[in-house]
Nucleic acid binder design. Structure first.
Length: 199
DNA sequence: CTAGGGATATTG
DNA sequence: CAATATCCCTAG
């Protein structure tokens, strides 16, 4: 196999969370981005493929490297139960499905609207018809914070993850960082409601 | 209900 | 073996 089309697209946070924004950014081809997102996110790749229409807006946030078709870490979309081979009562994990870009965007929007902590509101507002539970939202938010280099807890390291298999847009990352800083700096502003329609 | 830690699954 | 990502459990 030739290594001509071996192009890897990483998230900007993977490049260097300390050096923001990263100066070493390569712009991949629209077709590569579309294929990559289609492979990673599946159906969501269709929406992201629209970004390929504008190679100077959102594609600049992605970094191209080699061997980008590596599989994702963590639980894939499988529904196996190693402990219960045939037992339906011992099924602890129901489905390990990775978060999609749309889900992350809705989560960020919910946090920006209600604030970090009101997962019930976000769940009943955006994830009402989803399998995501308030605890899952909190877990995902924590993971996002660590991914963006924002220490959530005392044990959380300041540095971001080394290998991020979830490409995120710069806009989304900036929103996450802003929300994290806002929530960490001023924890008094908690009365946020009666709005949220800002196109 | 929310925050934190543990357990499991996959990849390098 | 180490790291990441999701899900499950427990404490307040």
């Amino acid at each position: 196999m030739e290594a001509a089309d071996e192009v890897q697209i990483w998230a900007p946070i993977l490049a260097d969370p300390l050096d923001w924004p990263p100066s070493s950014v390569t712009i991949p081809l629209p077709s590569q981005v579309e294929e990559y997102f289609s492979y990673v996110y599946g159906l969501d790749g269709m929406e992201i493929s629209k970004l390929a229409q504008q190679p100077e807006d959102d594609l600049g946030d992605l970094i191209v490297k080699q061997n980008w078709w590596r599989r994702l870490r963590g639980p894939r979309k499988r529904r196996i139960f190693p402990w219960g081979s045939g037992c339906m009562n011992s099924h602890r994990r129901k489905n390990n499905e990775h978060w999609t870009h749309e889900e992350v965007k809705k989560l960020v929007k919910g946090v920006k609207t209600y604030g970090a902590g009101r997962w019930t509101m976000v769940k009943n507002r955006y994830f009402s018809s989803s399998v995501r539970d308030p605890a899952h939202l909190k877990d995902k938010w924590r993971n996002l914070l660590r991914a963006c280099g924002v220490p959530c807890t005392s044990k959380t390291k300041e540095k971001a993850q080394k290998t991020m298999f979830r490409p995120l847009d710069t806009e989304l990352i900036q929103q996450i960082q802003g929300l994290a800083i806002d929530s960490a700096s001023t924890s008094k502003m908690k009365k946020r409601r009666g709005k949220g329609t800002t196109s």
